[in-house]
Simulated scan of single mutants.
Amino acid sequence: MIIAITKFRLPKPVSREEAREIFLSTAPKYQGASGLLRKHYVMWEDGSTVGGVYLWNSCSEAEAMYTESWKAFVRGKYGTEPSVTYLDNPITVDNISEEILSNG
């Protein structure tokens, strides 16, 4: 599995409620995305930076999401350039499903 962390520094800070409304407007775009297991929307405490923490089945599926088209969508929605960081995720402890997930 792969974790991708996206991050966008906003032109002006947003409140938690503003961020929530924006996130809800984009969430359906990620439903059913091939290889995406989970997406967590995140925001920094001061509201100046937002992003996502994604759990992907594979790196190739993650990379297929973060295309130039996706970057253009982010620029249009948030008015800023996104960054994407990839991390290998060999083990995940899921306390909701009571599973330990491994892609070994």
Results as ranks from 00 to 15, higher is better:
residue 95 N to Y: 10
residue 11 P to D: 03
residue 14 V to T: 12
residue 62 A to S: 07
residue 8 F to I: 09
residue 24 L to D: 12
residue 87 L to K: 11
residue 44 W to D: 15
residue 91 I to V: 14
residue 63 E to V: 13
residue 75 R to K: 15
residue 55 L to D: 00
residue 58 S to C: 07
residue 93 V to M: 14
residue 4 A to Y: 00
residue 68 E to K: 09
residue 50 V to I: 14
residue 39 K to N: 03
residue 104 G to W: 14
residue 102 S to I: 04
residue 44 W to A: 14
residue 17 E to Y: 05
residue 31 Q to S: 13
residue 91 I to T: 12
residue 66 Y to D: 06
residue 80 T to H: 13
residue 62 A to K: 00
residue 30 Y to R: 01
residue 89 N to S: 14
residue 71 K to I: 13
residue 102 S to C: 11
residue 35 G to F: 05
residue 87 L to D: 11
residue 7 K to P: 05
residue 33 A to W: 03
residue 12 K to D: 12
residue 61 E to G: 01
residue 25 S to F: 04
residue 19 A to M: 10
residue 45 E to Y: 02
residue 68 E to H: 06
residue 51 G to T: 00
residue 29 K to M: 08
residue 41 Y to K: 03
residue 13 P to F: 10
residue 48 S to G: 11
residue 8 F to H: 13
residue 44 W to S: 10
residue 13 P to A: 12
residue 28 P to N: 08
residue 12 K to E: 15
residue 86 Y to W: 03
residue 6 T to M: 09
residue 68 E to F: 02
residue 63 E to A: 08
residue 46 D to G: 01
residue 26 T to D: 06
residue 32 G to I: 01
residue 56 W to Q: 01
residue 66 Y to N: 09
residue 82 P to G: 08
residue 50 V to F: 02
residue 74 V to D: 08
residue 30 Y to N: 03
residue 33 A to H: 06
residue 43 M to G: 02
residue 57 N to F: 03
residue 75 R to D: 15
residue 72 A to K: 12
residue 68 E to V: 03
residue 98 E to S: 04
residue 80 T to V: 08
residue 29 K to Q: 05
residue 22 I to H: 15
residue 63 E to H: 06
residue 91 I to Y: 14
residue 63 E to S: 04
residue 74 V to G: 00
residue 54 Y to T: 01
residue 15 S to P: 06
residue 92 T to H: 09
residue 33 A to T: 05
residue 14 V to M: 08
residue 71 K to L: 02
residue 40 H to M: 12
residue 7 K to L: 11
residue 20 R to I: 10
residue 96 I to W: 05
residue 99 E to G: 03
residue 73 F to H: 01
residue 86 Y to H: 06
residue 28 P to C: 05
residue 52 G to E: 05
residue 102 S to M: 10
residue 96 I to N: 09
residue 71 K to W: 04
residue 78 Y to L: 12
residue 12 K to L: 10
residue 45 E to H: 06
residue 42 V to W: 01
residue 27 A to G: 09
residue 97 S to V: 06
residue 40 H to N: 13
residue 37 L to W: 00
residue 27 A to Q: 10
residue 70 W to M: 05
residue 38 R to Y: 08
residue 15 S to N: 07
residue 2 I to M: 10
residue 72 A to G: 07
residue 58 S to D: 12
residue 69 S to M: 15
residue 90 P to A: 05
residue 86 Y to K: 08
residue 104 G to A: 11
residue 16 R to W: 15
residue 14 V to D: 14
residue 81 E to Q: 15
